[in-house]
């Protein structure tokens, strides 16, 4: 359970996050929507510790993580994918996923056994490659691959550490329809011990997967409700969906 209380963030005079509160119970599929520049990515950066909030609290399973480092939060079960691909471009797909598998198997400090001899890491790597659908390009260098496939690796890296809360920042942007269909299917198939918070622009995909939706606008929560509530809200229709839905 991730809970966010009255979070605030300003860049100078610009307030990008304004009194944002959020409850993410175990197993939920929570979508965050809002126009460009609404502060969605900033919210993720605050949750993962990449940015420090100016005020507010972040609590993960009764532990106040507001002031913990990003790596501590990750080890506590908070994982994210990035809006812009953030991979190890000089390495192969296998080497990329192995990095996350090393975390998952807690082998980062192992300096006495060759990586190639650790079957659990290879297994985890291949398992994740299968899940996100990149098993056939495992040995290819990442920089040779298409944007859509790199996007799948991006999601794979976030998933491979087996987090409690998975934060996905526009995972399907730039993907082909098949690729994005696959990722959306994947999200619905994820085990229910896991909570997923997803930033997504495609409203059809949002209504397909989300149990709950938060609408952000100018850093503020405009509305927090079920997909039905959001769909029928006049405010949301006007300010964000522009009446263009259905």
């Amino acid at each position: 359970m991730l809970s966010v209380e009255a979070l605030e963030k300003s860049f100078g005079a610009l307030q990008v996050t304004n009194q944002v509160s959020l409850q993410v119970p175990t197993g939920i599929r929570h979508a965050i929507i809002g126009p460009n520049g609404a502060g969605k990515t900033t919210l993720f950066n605050l949750l993962t510790g990449e940015l420090r909030p100016t005020a507010g609290r972040i609590v993960l399973d009764d532990l106040d993580i507001t002031h913990l480092t990003p790596d501590r939060r990750a080890r506590l079960g908070l994982s994210r994918s990035f809006q812009r691909n953030n991979l190890f471009t000089g390495l192969t797909v296998r080497q990329n996923l192995a990095m996350a598998a090393i975390v998952h198997e807690r082998r980062g400090r192992c300096f006495w056994r060759p990586l190639a001899g650790l079957s659990t890491i290879a297994e985890r790597t291949e398992e994740i490659a299968d899940i996100v659908g990149i098993a056939d390009v495992l040995e290819r260098p990442v920089r040779e691959l298409s944007y859509g496939i790199q996007r799948q690796i991006e999601v794979g890296l976030a998933l491979a550490t087996a987090p409690k809360v998975l934060l996905l920042d526009e995972p399907t942007s730039g993907m082909s329809p098949e690729e994005s269909g696959r990722i959306m299917h994947l999200i619905t198939e994820l085990p229910r011990e896991l909570a997923v918070v997803i930033i997504e622009h495609d409203m059809h995909l949002v209504f397909e997967v989300a149990d709950r939706i938060t609408v952000l606008n100018y850093g503020k929560v405009l509305l927090d409700g079920t997909p039905e509530e959001v769909r029928s809200s006049d405010v949301v229709q006007e300010t964000y969906l522009g009446g263009g839905l259905d």
Partner: peptide, 21 residues
Amino acid sequence: TPYGRVLTGIHENPQRMRALG
């Protein structure tokens, strides 16, 4: 070893390594 691979990863992309934990 895994430790050695982690060092390479930190060289390649420290931000991602931190985000991974």
